[in-house]
Design a protein around this nucleic acid. Structure first.
Lengths: 199, 199
DNA sequence: ACCTGAACACCGTTCAAGT
DNA sequence: ACCTGAACACCGTTCAAGT
């Protein structure tokens, strides 16, 4: 089961077939059906294993620390398992293991002045941003920070008359690490949560 | 090509095969290769067609209107094409058509006091949230707003000793429309952008 | 130019049979 | 209990051949 994750990391998501995975484990593909109901359950299992890597800072009076570690933790998983991360982006993770970090985050928020509705909203906002950013980052930004191969369109190739602002901002669009971009977004979200919390 | 999108909408993403699509068009599967290099290019094409549905409010002096319509527009596409939306979540969209709404948004931001770096950061934050939220929503929330079938874990089934806060907040986690949740997140982001902009 | 038929090298999954 | 072999109903893609 971890072998499946390792196989995806090593050879890409397309390489994960029942037959290839069987070969990896020195077993016929059909034997896997003794241990897992089918391919889809296998993908669920991989998502779960991946999300178990998420470590969140303990709730110690500063909810922003929890919020930050939650979001950066999700993105960290995406960076460690870029090929596999699309799976968790496309699946609900309702297992106890996946819920533990969420419990910590929600406790931290609720203990520090968030109303129940605000706490839930904050959690979902952070989760959406982290997954969305990681997914977009993994698959290549629209207007990529670094030109990274054939699929990304070069800004210089765009008709300048139709896209004057994109041209004007091309330096900012193509420069900067994706780390900085992520942190900036996270900062803004936390600022927004603070702004809404205070009144 | 629109036939492919219609097929996914109607019968699910799994039903889109070269052979099925060929049948849909009363043609052999192999004929499709005259018009498209392969299956992957076809998926790119579908993403593009879908994103052409994105209409953004014109820049008229209130960037929050552009920002809101950009984010809600992306989510609207996801709601209209739930099965197909995973494709755009997993692909960079660097075609002129996909860039046009981004041009409008960036212009609006830059004309209304955002520095170039802030404008780019705001755009990427909005795009990440919208895609991330839509994707999570489509595939079922972790801790679902509505119990929606087998894959979602019932909160009552969780050991209350291990997850006291989730239990405490279960009303807020399971109630409320997903529309309200989305708007709330978007409000928070816009509040954050305003907070960062003003100092 | 566009479409077809047969073929190749794969898939996930089932099921009766082995140990 | 666990694994295997053969089989079934599919895939995407190639390529020579048709009109």
């Amino acid at each position: 089961l971890d072998a499946a994750l390792e196989l995806i990391d090593r050879e890409g998501a397309a390489a994960l077939t029942m037959r290839r995975l069987g070969a990896e484990l020195d077993v016929e593909a059909m034997s896997l059906y003794r241990h897992v109901p089918g391919r889809d359950a296998l993908l669920d299992g991989i998502s779960e294993v991946m999300m178990q890597e998420l470590r969140i800072a303990p709730a110690t009076g500063d909810w922003t620390r929890c919020a930050r570690s939650f979001a950066t933790g999700i993105r960290g998983i995406a960076r460690r398992h870029p090929e596999a991360f699309a799976l968790v982006g496309l699946r609900a993770l309702n297992t106890p293991d996946a819920l533990r970090p969420i419990e910590v985050l929600l406790r931290s928020l609720r203990d520090e002045g968030f109303t129940p509705a605000e706490a839930v909203g904050a959690y979902r906002l952070l989760a959406s941003f982290a997954r969305g950013y990681a997914l977009i980052e993994m698959t290549g930004f629209t207007l990529a920070p670094r030109e990274e191969g054939a699929s990304s369109l070069r800004i210089d190739g765009l008709p300048a008359k139709d896209f004057p602002v994109i041209h004007e901002l091309s330096r900012q669009l193509t420069r900067g690490t994706t780390d900085a971009q992520f942190t900036l977004g996270l900062d803004t979200i936390i600022a927004g949560l603070q702004a809404k919390q205070s009144h």
